[in-house]
Design a protein around this nucleic acid. Structure first.
Length: 817
RNA sequence: GCCCGGGUGGUGAAAUUGGUAGACACAAGGGACUUAAAAUCCCUCGGCUUUACGGCCGUGCCGGUUCGAGUCCGGCCCCGGGCACCA
């Protein structure tokens, strides 16, 4: 074989070997336990970017490592093919979304193949294929039958010029990104999935996911936001309705000085009929985005109405305000305001000159000045009549009890989690399989008529969805009465498709049912890899969907992803790469110049997986240099001819040192690959080992045998990260089977045994010297040696040693005064 | 604003359970080889200080716990991700 490293030739040769051996086309029941390794499938945005390279290289490293560990690993790939960027590209380039998407898939697939990922392409799917989405439609009709989906009104960002609903990212400074006119909040009837029915299970099962990062579980817990509180009724004075508010702080009830309702609340709408100012205020509130971040940071404004409600305990009349920060779709659309003990209410009351009443005082000696800020902590009740002197905790109970007794309230468990809105008023998505009939109402499309195919040969102009005007799609017959009817023109949120694709991979091409029994050979996914930006929404919806599949009898476990690796972002100018800004960082030129192994290794070496970092091309050159050195080193070794068997008892000290380095590298890499999931240190470990081999002066046959052993282990350890060059070197080292079909070597524990160990000697915690001690040396001997050290002696003369701390194998600390 | 992360040399980072801060690389500078360049190899590389041995300081900022803190605790600053229609 050539003495010059040629990445293009080496990589093509290795890929040919894998293709001919069908190395990655997994068999259902091959030898070894099944292991499902999955990296989040990409949106086909055009070209791969460095974020993709990172995600799929990490997935492939796990894939190849677990294969060496003896598992029958499946790593499939597919395309999250519906979505907004295809519509934007269609407007910009006059290319139909379907055509644009399919050509992107083809290009990106070629790039993935060039990168040498060990993917089972026989299971490939694209979510825009009717064979895929028909089952999503079918399942939705089943959920409809079970009462798990329903319609309700929800607000959207409406662009009055483009006559289109805008995504939050399409609203810039309150204006439509293309039209430039202010967007309006508009209510529309939409489809929802009842994720709240599963809120408790989604919360509780997080405790049974030890393979998930704590940070992600914590984010999901906070998102679900289970809280215990009280629904309190405030009867409207001179009216027959009752305003119900939810609070987690009933202990502050006596401090409520007003109530606030959402601008869309019926009470607000009624007030608008009586006052033009209220009507104008409500109109003005329509000009805010629907995003929560917007709601939280915008200026809090409100207007008083003529309505009054009765305080449920004191009977006092409280004013009703309309406020822009109260959400109609969250809770009952009304809140009680306690300015003394809630900072937002305090600011609002201060702004409008509303009374601020202190009803909680600090229980300890904290300071509290209600004039300057709200006191939001728990404490002791004051100005609360019969409840005075109780702690907040006790008052929570006693006030709740009093309200329940008077029929003025109910204890309630509340969730922050809202039902999942799955309707999108867009063209490039999966059609929602429902039919609107004037006579029968809403009727699901029957099984025999599925799939409802999305017409692909349409003109897409960016004003409204073509589905709403395309007669051939729109007009149909009612499955129930046979009369004229219209199809639903909304399509699904693309999180629908990504909520079950992992299950479909395990049951490819199943025609009936949606998933067959093969799914349980693989699901749940053993190791799921993806970006931290998916920590809440995608993972929560996928968890929900898996439970829905379970309850429909299709999968036999509770959670879809056993172990989760959340990757930090690959940043571009300090920010996440975005589809809308045009993904940058195409690896193509690097692949052509340095090859896949150098790109993969540089990416793994750059940072540990969970860390975000800014990609820099410069590292690739360094890895290419390292591969040239390794290539030369192996060939210089093999040029010396066959090696003899290793005689472990007959080695020089230097040879023993090299064997120690070899096996400590192996042991550490094993831990890094499996438990720690930190691959940058695997690369640096191999660098160190290769440096040690280079420095080693091999003279005897035994020395050559030790080098051979070290090179083989270096090649094996590096192989999940740089699979092509290691395959070539593996065969150069005389191995006839494919490296990918080999197995992870055992650690020779004898090689790790050391007779002496270096300890550092500290005086008052500062390093002052080093001593070489026998492994069996006792504390007394170590102490004597430490005190005898020349530099150490300088720091302890004319002082008394008060204490000696010996940490085995590490250090001695002499505490002197 | 709220929730979750992060901040260590010129740069990417390492330090796994509280025990040698800066491994391994990149960049830079110096040298060898060469007619020259590329490639390759060798040396230096946190700051200050010392003829040298060595010493002092140093992990975003302030304070605490400890024999010992990059690591633990309290408070702050800055950066990133998410916030329900980007995926």
């Amino acid at each position: 074989m050539s003495a010059i490293y040629d990445p293009q030739g080496v990589e093509q040769a290795a890929q040919t070997l894998w293709r001919e051996a069908k190395s990655f086309e997994v068999e259902e029941s091959a030898a070894g336990e099944n292991f499902y390794c999955l990296a989040m499938f990409p949106y086909p945005s055009g070209k791969l970017h460095m974020g993709h390279v990172r995600t799929y290289t990490l997935g492939d490293v796990i894939n190849r490592y677990q294969r060496l560990k003896g598992f029958n690993v499946m790593m499939p790939m597919g395309w999250d093919a519906f979505g907004l960027p295809a519509e934007n590209a269609a407007i910009k380039n006059k290319v139909p979304p379907a055509e644009w998407t399919r050509s992107n898939i083809q290009y990106m697939k070629g790039q993935m193949q060039r990168l040498g990922f060990g993917i089972d392409w026989s299971r490939e799917l694209a979510t825009c294929d009717p064979d895929y989405y028909r089952w999503e439609q079918w399942f939705f009709t089943k959920l409809f039958e079970k009462g798990l989906v329903y319609r309700k009104s929800a607000v959207v960002n409406w662009d009055p010029v483009d006559q289109t609903v805008l995504a939050n990212e399409q609203v810039v400074d309150g204006k439509g990104w293309r039209s430039g006119v202010p967007v309006e909040r508009r209510e529309m009837d939409q489809w929802f999935v009842k994720i709240t029915d599963y809120a408790d299970e989604l919360l509780n099962m997080l405790d049974e996911l030890p393979g998930w990062p704590e940070s992600v579980k914590s984010m999901q817990r906070n998102w679900i936001g289970k809280s215990a509180g009280v629904d309190i009724n405030f009867p409207v004075i001179d009216g027959d309705e009752v305003l119900t508010v939810y609070t987690t702080r009933p202990d502050t009830l006596l401090g409520a000085t007003y109530v606030a309702v959402a601008p869309q609340h019926p009470l607000a709408e009624r007030a608008a009929l009586l006052s033009t100012e209220v009507a104008e205020f409500i109109e003005a509130c329509k000009n805010t985005k629907t995003a929560e971040a917007e709601m939280a940071t915008m200026e809090k404004i409100g207007i008083e109405t003529a309505a009054r409600v009765e305080h449920p305990l004191t009977g006092e009349a409280l004013p009703v305000w309309v406020a822009n920060f109260v959400l109609m779709e969250y809770g009952s659309g009304a809140v009680m305001s306690v300015p003394g003990h809630d900072q937002r209410d305090w600011e609002f009351a201060t702004k409008y000159g509303l009374p601020i009443k202190q009803v909680i005082e600090p229980a300890g000696n904290e300071s509290c000045d209600i004039e300057k800020a709200a006191f939001t902590a728990y404490g002791k009740l004051v100005n609360s009549g019969e409840f005075d002197g109780q702690t907040s905790e006790l008052a929570f109970e006693s006030i709740a009890t009093a309200l329940v007794a008077k029929g003025r309230g109910e204890r309630k468990i509340n969730f922050r989690l809202r039902d999942w809105g799955v309707s999108r008023q867009r063209y490039w998505g999966c059609p929602i399989p429902m039919i609107h009939c004037d006579a029968c109402g809403i009727v699901p499309v029957p099984d025999k008529d599925l799939p409802v195919v999305l017409p692909e040969d349409v003109a897409f102009e960016g004003v409204g969805s073509p589905l709403t005007t395309l007669d051939s799609f729109l007009n149909t017959r009612c499955p129930s009465c046979g009369g004229e009817a219209r199809r639903e023109t909304d399509t699904f949120d693309t999180f629908m498709e990504s909520s079950w694709y992992y299950a479909r991979f395990a049951s490819p091409n199943s025609n009936k049912p949606m998933l067959d029994e093969r799914v349980n050979n693989w699901a749940p996914v053993n190791h799921y890899v993806g970006g931290i930006e998916h920590a809440i929404l995608h993972l929560l919806y996928a968890r929900l969907y898996y439970k829905l599949l379970r309850d429909a009898g299709m999968v036999d476990s509770d959670e879809p992803f056993t172990r989760l690796l959340m990757l930090g972002m690959v940043l571009q100018n300090g920010k996440k790469m975005s589809k809308s800004a045009g993904d940058a960082g195409d690896p193509q030129h690097l692949l052509e110049m340095y090859g896949a192994d150098a790109v993969r290794t540089a990416m793994m070496f750059a940072a540990p997986p969970d860390q975000s970092f800014e990609w820099n091309d410069a590292g690739v050159d360094g890895q290419a240099k390292f591969f040239r050195r390794l290539w030369k080193l192996v060939h210089e070794h093999t040029d010396l001819g066959p090696v003899v068997d290793l005689e472990r008892t007959d080695l020089t000290a230097a040879a023993k040192d090299l064997r120690h380095k070899t096996y400590s590298t192996l042991e550490r890499a094993d831990d890094d690959f499996d438990r720690r999931l930190q691959f940058n240190t695997v690369v640096s470990g191999v660098h160190e080992l290769v440096n040690a081999i280079s420095r080693f002066q091999a003279t005897t046959d035994q020395d050559h045998a030790v080098v051979h052993e070290a090179l083989k282990i270096a090649v094996l350890v590096l192989s999940p990260i740089a699979p092509h060059i290691t395959q070539a070197l593996w065969s150069e080292l005389g191995e006839s089977t494919l490296l990918i079909d080999s197995s992870w070597p055992e650690v020779d524990t004898d090689a790790l045994v050391r007779e002496t160990v270096e300890l550092i000697v500290q005086v008052n915690g500062k390093v002052r010297g080093r001593i070489e001690v026998n492994l069996e040396a006792d504390e007394g001997a170590i102490r004597t040696m430490a005190l005898e050290n020349e530099n150490v002696a300088r720091f302890i003369e004319d002082k008394t040693v008060h204490k000696v701390i010996v940490v085995a194998g590490k250090l001695v600390n002499l505490v002197v005064r």
